[in-house]
Simulated scan of single mutants.
Amino acid sequence: MAALADSTSFRLRLVNNNSLKVVALGDSLVYGFGDHEGGGWVERLRRQWMMPPNPGHVLYNLGVRGDRTQQVSQRLEDEFRNRGELRNRVPDLIILSVGVNDSARLARANGRNYTDFANFEREIDALLARAQQLCPVLFVGMVPVNEEKMPFLDCFYYNLADQYRYKEATKQACQAREIPYLDIFDLWMGRGSQWMRSRLTEDGLHPNILGYQSLLEDVLNWEAMQQLMSAKIVTI
């Protein structure tokens, strides 16, 4: 993974007393579904950055439940252009988190993937390319699912093997573009199935309150986020 400070593609323009405007786009993991207490990791981070007397960056949650890569790509530029707040101003950073819905199998456990893998590879690369044309980008990867709880909504079959395949394609696409990527899937799988499952809701797909707390901790401990939060100078 390219370190934020080392990546020529990741240059931040600090405004308003070292405050950045950040947009987070993606699926239910960005939206925060499953966390009735804190609203998900993006909302928890937004609240932290709102704390006086030293507020942090401005953060907009633009997650939509069920979105796949294609849907995020379709709304990317409109969402971005309408979050500038001030005239002739646009956001300084995009955080992306999408891909798990693309990996789902339809109707049965061995059904076709919701997004064909070859199409997904093209779509994720196109999304990253479009996002980088707008501003610097960070990518937060998907959480692993509990296969024993499938199907979701009686028709979507998520499994770890497909998840790994799709997240690896995303990770490699990010590395090729020097976009910092946080591999949540590997982090959580490395902590054991009991630890992971204790952080998912009954549907086996979405994090619960504890899961979003853990997810926020992983994001905050990420080198790219630490450098973002401690940034004190203007880089053009």
Results as ranks from 00 to 15, higher is better:
Arg122Thr: 14
Leu160Ala: 12
Ala109Ile: 11
Lys149Tyr: 08
Asn146Tyr: 04
Leu86Ile: 11
Phe156Leu: 15
Leu96Lys: 09
Leu93Asp: 04
Phe139Met: 05
Arg122Ala: 13
Leu93Val: 06
Glu85Trp: 00
Asp154Gly: 06
Thr115Gln: 00
Ala129Leu: 11
Gln133Asn: 13
Tyr157Gly: 13
Thr115Arg: 01
Ile124Gly: 06
Leu106Val: 10
Asn159Met: 04
Val98Ala: 05
Val100Gln: 12
Ile95Leu: 10
Arg112His: 12
Asp102Glu: 04
Arg89Asp: 13
Gly111Phe: 08
Met142Ser: 15
Thr115Met: 04
Gln132Leu: 14
Leu128Gln: 04
Ile124Cys: 06
Asp116Leu: 00
Val100Asn: 09
Glu79Gly: 06
Leu138Trp: 09
Leu138Asp: 07
Asn88Thr: 12
Tyr114Thr: 02
Asp116Phe: 00
Leu160Met: 08
Val137Thr: 06
Leu96Arg: 08
Arg122Glu: 13
Glu79Asp: 15
Val140Tyr: 00
Leu86Pro: 00
Ala107Thr: 06
Arg112Ala: 15
Arg81Glu: 12
Asn159Phe: 07
Ala161Ser: 15
Phe120Gln: 06
Val90Pro: 00
Ala118Thr: 02
Ile94Phe: 10
Leu128Asn: 02
Phe156Tyr: 15
Phe80Asn: 08
Ala104Thr: 07
Phe139Glu: 03
Pro91Glu: 01
Leu128Phe: 07
Ile95Phe: 03
Ala131Lys: 00
Asn113Glu: 12
Tyr157Met: 12
Tyr158Ser: 06
Asn110Ile: 09
Pro136Glu: 04
Gln133Ala: 14
